[in-house]
Simulated assay, not measured.
Amino acid sequence: MRYAQGGGLTAERRAFREQIRLDAGEMFAAGSDNAEVAKSLPRLSDELFVKLEAALALGAAAHGWPDERWTLARIRKLIGRMFHKSYTGPGVRLSLGWPSTTRARTSWSLPRDASTG
Rank of each mutant, 00 (worst) to 15 (best):
Q5W: 03
S95M: 15
A114N: 10
T116C: 05
A11H: 02
L94K: 15
H84T: 11
W65D: 08
G89K: 09
S115I: 04
G117C: 11
A73T: 15
H84Y: 05
V92Y: 00
W108G: 00
L94R: 12
E47R: 13
R76P: 00
K85Y: 00
A61P: 06
S32I: 01
A30P: 01
F28Y: 15
R112P: 00
E36T: 15
P111W: 03
A104K: 09
Q19K: 12
P90I: 05
G91C: 06
M82N: 04
A15N: 13
L52E: 01
E47F: 13
V37Y: 05
A104F: 05
I75C: 08
E18W: 03
E26T: 09
E12D: 15
A30M: 03
Y87R: 08
S109G: 03
G91W: 01
E18V: 07
G91V: 00
E18I: 10
E68A: 14
L56T: 05
L44V: 02
G7T: 13
A35C: 07
S40Q: 13
R112H: 12
Y3E: 14
F49Y: 13
L110A: 10
R17M: 10
G97P: 02
R13G: 03
E36R: 15
L41S: 12
Q19M: 08
F16D: 06
L78A: 02
T101A: 06
H63F: 02
Y87I: 00
G25N: 14
R105Y: 07
